[in-house]
């Protein structure tokens, strides 16, 4: 049911963990299944230098979390805002139809983290 790439990211997830004093933090819950994902950002000169994640979710949720962190590192904040759940799913060679909603978690959490960063900047 899962592609090799999904299983690879699931069994060896990249960038698991937290960043202390992160520049931005995003947390989202999945309305359809109740799963949760949290993303931490380190930003320099508008560029995402480091990303870490924590996820309570299914295989697809963990794999998309891992994938989205790889895809976000090195991107500008604007580029990262453009990352869609479909792009993350594609990068994993696709997800089963009933697991497409899981990829929303990853993209949404990333976007929330960027918004959080911008709010902090605005406030600061």
């Amino acid at each position: 049911m899962y592609t090799e790439k999904v299983m690879d990211h699931f069994s060896n997830p990249r960038n698991v963990g937290e960043i202390e004093n992160a520049d931005g933090v995003g947390e989202v819950g999945n309305a359809s299944c109740g799963d949760i994902m949290k993303i931490f950002l380190k930003v320099e000169d508008n560029i995402i230098k480091d990303v870490k994640f924590k996820t309570f979710g299914c295989g697809a949720a963990i794999a998309t979390s891992s994938m989205v962190t790889e895809m976000a590192i090195g991107k500008t904040l604007d580029e990262a805002m453009e990352l869609t759940n479909a792009a993350v799913a594609d990068a994993l060679d696709g997800l089963p139809a009933n697991k497409m909603h899981c990829s929303n978690l990853a993209a949404d959490a990333l976007h929330e983290a960027i918004k959080n960063y911008k709010e902090k900047q605005g406030a600061g």
Binding site: Y2, F10, S11, D35, F56, G57, C58, G59, I62
Partner: peptide
């Protein structure tokens, strides 16, 4: 506690 079932099953 703290673990989602499917990810456990896959492991």
């Amino acid at each position: 506690a703290y673990i989602e079932g499917e990810s456990l099953l896959l492991n």
